[in-house]
């Protein structure tokens, strides 16, 4: 399995960890030699998913958010997982401008941004069990070889 590489993160669902998660994933991504724009795209999409886990999944409770990253050839797959409340209607939740937290000034743009900045976005969610957001992005520049 020369051309795959994986990492996992587990951290408390505190908003101060959002920046940490972005930097950690961006740094893992850097081995594919992405453009600055590709890095920014992944950071924005990841930030949306982690923010969702913190404010919607756990609704402010401090529990664990999990991130799983895999690089295969030139594609990065990143999954953001929470064991929070789950989403009753995923299709509705993914509509632009739809938000359940208007009073907290949520723009309702989270999933729209994820879809805009990543190649593919999948959402698996079960009410009472949690949510897993899986995002994929191809990095087009010629990558560095993994070191043996």
């Amino acid at each position: 399995m020369k051309d795959t590489n994986e990492m996992k993160l587990e951290f408390d669902s505190r908003s101060c960890n959002e920046g940490f998660a972005r930097v950690a994933v961006a740094s893992f991504l850097s081995q594919l030699n992405p453009t600055l724009e590709e890095v920014a795209d992944v950071k924005t999409a990841l930030s949306e998913a982690v923010t969702n886990a913190i404010i919607h999944g756990y609704e402010g409770r401090v529990e664990k958010v999990y991130i799983e990253c895999q690089i295969k050839d030139r594609e990065m797959t990143v999954a953001v997982i929470d064991h929070g409340c789950g989403i009753p209607d995923v299709e509705k939740a993914m509509e632009p401008l739809y938000t359940t937290k208007e009073e907290e000034e949520r723009a309702g743009m989270g999933f729209a941004f994820m879809e805009a900045f990543m190649d593919e976005v999948f959402v698996e969610s079960e009410v009472g069990k949690g949510t897993k957001v899986i995002m994929k992005k191809k990095i087009n520049r010629v990558p560095h070889q993994f070191e043996e």
């Binding site: 920014a40 930030s47 949306e48 923010t51 907290e104 000034e105 949520r106 723009a107 989270g110």
Partner: peptide, 13 residues
């Protein structure tokens, strides 16, 4: 150098 939809929510508010 970084903004996500939370920034949009803040501006709109």
């Amino acid at each position: 150098n970084f903004m996500d939809s939370s920034g949009i929510g803040m501006i709109m508010g």
